[in-house]
Design a protein around this nucleic acid. Structure first.
Length: 489
RNA sequence: GGCGCUAUCGUCUAGGGGUUAGGACGGGUGAUUCUCAGUCACUAAACCGGGGUUCGAAUCCCCGUAGCGCUGCCA
């Protein structure tokens, strides 16, 4: 029984996605249940759009949750904001048992305290000074009667060494003197992450907590809360962080970071997933390309690394290219079409020709790593080139090219059928007739027809473009070279 | 400052006492070819430093250093 518990304060980033993935894999591998729980206990930072984005990201990746929002389940509700009564009840329970106390300290006092501690560069121990822990009972009653704002804090025992066995890192121990009396219930009646997390994990029967390693220092606090309740703590495993290429934190600035950004820039979910799983985990041996099922079968926490990993976008792109090659032209059509429509306003009439569009995709798929590249590089299949790449024009458009282009246009007009085999035959024949290498014909033709010096095989390209279009473009290129514009180049 | 986590090619990693330290991405070279991409072949590239333990350490231990995290009525 595991859970992924994001906080809806922003988009789902790739680090979160990997945590979700590892939880998913662990659950599936062991035949367990994967719960999605929303930790929305901070109303100040809550964003409704973030929630939708998290759902969309997870669904896109195929990390479907067994229980949670939309899916339902017996352990709900799955929004912490809908469980506040539960947390309050549990806080009361701790209060009654003398394991927690009410704290009436103002934010100002706490801020001042922190400042002084900072100044004093305290040798060890920091955090709350336990001012209210020692407050006389009568005083507390009076304050309570006066409705004074307060929080509930945990009484952290002195001189305790809290030890836990992290499934990835091994034994980790903390001295309780390092821990301050953490807040369980905020003055607005909402629980803190710590309380809600422990109460929910227990009530939802979570057996394994797999989360990011920024939580590792919070774990002893959580264990103390479990202890205060008299509950057995679950197993913990802390996943390493994912860093940006410069070794810093991943953010919108450094790499896309957001899962949906990767979707938008045309990445395949399989590729992102496969790439992500390799960040911090390897099945052993040389295996890298894996389906979700294969990952599931091979997954084990013992093989998860404790080391932070850099998100190498170049490798992601390579992997995406790999997965892109496996997609059929047919299945790619809607996505590429959407890109074309954006890239080529107003949409040219030829776009409606799906059979044609599919063939274009076929020509570009293998030389692309992302869907968007297919669309970006194939504009000339729908519209005559608006300009010629200047550098290529200097190289391939010479004054003598005009006559070559004219000759080719003439021969092409008579060519039947207009197939790539026939085209190639014709080109070789003409080249031979002129005593020129075929490249002298091919390169100028490519530039004339596409405006650029790279792309699919020329003859396949010409065949698809069709006789009329090719001849028209050959002629206008010839004219262009002849004009002042052409000569200036 | 305190506490914690981490440390193998540029990057992701395998290897966990005896290995020519393996693979992948990226780089370089060559082949194929009408270009680009691809593909294929080849190639350069790493055990953070210092001490221990041991016949033997990349591997185990300690120290140092560096990076990161936490030090909130954020999660």
């Amino acid at each position: 029984m595991v859970r992924f518990a994001p906080s809806p304060t922003g988009y789902l980033h790739v680090g979160g996605a990997r945590t979700a993935l590892f939880n998913f894999l662990f659950a599936r591998h062991h035949g367990g249940i994967f719960i999605l729980r929303i930790e929305d206990t901070d109303q100040k930072r809550f964003q409704a759009e973030a929630l939708q984005e998290i759902f969309a990201s997870l669904k896109w990746l195929g990390l479907n949750w067994d229980e949670g929002p939309e899916a339902g389940g017996e352990r709900g509700p799955y929004f912490q904001s809908q469980r506040t009564a539960l947390y309050r009840r549990h806080a009361e329970q701790l209060l009654a048992a003398g394991k927690a106390y009410r704290c009436f300290c103002s934010e100002e006092r706490l801020a001042r305290m922190r400042e002084e501690q900072e100044k004093a560069k305290m040798a060890h121990g920091s955090g709350y000074d336990r001012h209210c822990r020692l407050r006389p009972e009568a005083e507390v009653k009076a304050l309570l009667a006066a409705n004074a704002a307060h929080v509930v804090r945990l009484k952290v025992p002195d001189n305790r060494v809290v030890v836990f066995n992290d499934l990835i890192r091994g034994e980790i121990s903390y001295d309780s003197s390092q821990l301050d009396d953490l807040v369980l219930l905020k003055s607005d009646g909402f629980p803190t992450y710590h309380l809600a997390n422990v109460v929910d994990d227990h009530l939802m029967q979570i057996t394994h907590v797999l989360r990011g390693d920024e939580w590792i220092v919070s774990t002893p606090k959580h264990i103390l809360i479990y202890e205060a309740f008299g509950w057995p703590p679950p197993h913990f495993a802390h996943m390493p962080v994912i860093l940006a290429a410069d070794g810093g934190k991943l953010s919108k600035r450094r790499g896309a970071a957001s899962v949906l950004d990767y979707q938008r820039s045309g990445f395949q979910p399989e590729a992102l997933l496969n790439f992500l799983v390799l960040l911090g985990w390897a099945p052993g041996g040389d295996r890298e390309i894996m389906t979700l099922d294969e990952m599931t079968a091979a997954f084990s926490l013992q093989r998860v690394s404790a080391k932070a990993a850099v998100f190498d976008e170049t490798k992601l792109e390579w992997m995406n290219g790999h997965y892109l090659q496996q997609r059929s032209q047919e299945s790619l059509l809607p996505e590429v079409m959407a890109c074309w429509e954006k890239l080529l306003p107003p949409p040219p009439a030829v776009l409606a020709d799906q059979a044609y569009a599919k063939k274009v995709i076929g020509l570009f798929k293998e030389r692309s790593k992302k869907i968007i590249e297919i669309a970006e590089n194939s504009g000339y299949f729908f519209r005559d080139p608006a300009a010629y790449d200047p550098q290529a024009a200097r190289k391939y458009f010479k004054s003598e090219t005009i006559s070559i282009l004219e000759l080719l246009a003439e021969k092409l007009a008579a060519l039947e059928p207009f197939s790539h085999e026939a085209l190639e035959g014709l080109y070789r024949q003409v080249a031979e007739g002129l005593g020129l290498p075929a490249g002298k014909l091919i390169h100028p033709t490519r530039l004339a027809v596409s405006g650029v010096s790279f792309g699919p095989g020329l003859f396949e390209m010409l065949e698809l473009l069709g006789k009329e279009t090719v001849i028209r473009r050959l002629q206008s290129a010839g004219n262009w070279i002849g004009t002042a514009a052409g000569k200036e180049e």
